[in-house]
Structures are given as C-alpha cells and as structure tokens.
C-alpha cells in the first residue's frame, strides 16, 4: 500500500487542524501524495482514510472530482497545454499536436523513456500570453512549437 513519508504524514496531520472541518484538509493531503508520488494511486485513498480518520469514499469523491489530481502515472515532466478559447485561437491545439509528434507520445500517456506526459487542458488563466502551457509547476507562455520544444529539452525532456 502507498504510504506518505514521515514528513508528509506530519503535514497532513497539521492540515487537519487548520480548518473548521477535517474534510477541508483532503485537497492538501491529496496534493502531498501527488507531490511525493507524481500521481495518486487508488490505495493512497485508503492510506489517507486511516491517517485522517475520514471515510475513504469521501476522499475518493474529492480525488475524482478534480482533474488536477493524476489518477494514472505521468512522466517526469507533466506538460499541460491549454486549448481553451484564447490559446486555441492562437494555435494551442497545433502546439499540443506538435509536441506529441516531437516526443513521440500520445495524449495522457507516458513516453517510452518515462520522461514526458502531454495533456490538453482547459483554461489556465493566462489568456493574455496565449498560447501557453504548464510544465509541472511552471508556466511557459507566448509559445511557438519550436520554443516549447526547446524549453522542454532544456528542462530535461
């Protein structure tokens, strides 16, 4: 079964005391799992359920509500290309396709070298710099396919 590191467990315990209801600590707890593991495996829900003393079903509800939690393994670089209105009008979809072609990976799958996963996502709130994408925690903006590929390669992709 997946278990959080000692620090992770410490953090979750602390989060539990921060809010009026322990249910509010579910999102930070799941984020911690994703940070440690890259994605949230099914049995992490059972682990958190024990750790936080909350029903597993309610943790699972939160996990499955938000697409920001990865329910399957992702590569070391999780590239989320915005294809919402502004980005789409400025070539976001073409950008995403070009990245898939260059790194030889299909959407939402992990590349053979385990380094890259490319997803198309909805608005990331950076419409003025379209097209843009998010690589792990970083925003990369005003992109062209060439620029995006260059930055990803710099980041180790």
């Amino acid at each position: 079964m997946f278990t959080l590191s000692a620090e992770g467990q410490e953090l979750v315990k602390k989060e539990l005391t921060r809010y009026e209801t322990p249910y509010s600590a579910i999102i930070p707890a799941l984020y911690r799992v994703q940070k440690e593991n890259g994605w949230v495996p099914e049995d992490a829900v059972l682990h958190l359920s024990q750790l936080m003393n909350l029903p597993a079903s309610h943790i699972n509800e939160v996990l499955h509500f938000y697409t920001m939690f990865n329910k399957k393994p992702v590569g070391k670089l999780h590239i989320q290309v915005c294809t919402n209105v502004s980005c789409a009008m400025n070539g976001g979809r073409e950008l995403a396709d070009a990245l898939c072609k260059r790194f030889n990976v299909k959407y939402d799958e992990v590349s053979a070298d385990r380094k890259i996963t490319i997803s198309r996502v909805e608005c990331l709130g950076s419409c003025d710099t379209a097209p843009m994408m998010q690589v792990n925690d970083r925003y990369l903006e005003n992109l062209t396919p060439e620029l995006a590929i260059k930055k990803i390669t710099e980041m180790g992709g």
């Binding site: 099914e42 059972l46 029903p55 499955h64």
Partner: peptide
C-alpha cells in the same frame, strides 16, 4: 450511509454527467 449507518461506503465520484455512485475498491 453517512447519516443513518454512519459507515460512508458510498460516494459520488467524478463530475457533471460523468458522476457515478460508487464504492472505494476494497470497501
């Protein structure tokens, strides 16, 4: 399950028209 039996086995997973009632595997 939440209020009467207080066992909370059931939850609503996913969003919008993908929403489904379900259980957590193993529970």
């Amino acid at each position: 399950c939440d209020e009467v039996t207080k066992t909370s086995e059931l939850g609503i997973f996913n969003r919008g028209d993908h929403s489904e009632i379900g259980i957590v595997e193993g529970k």
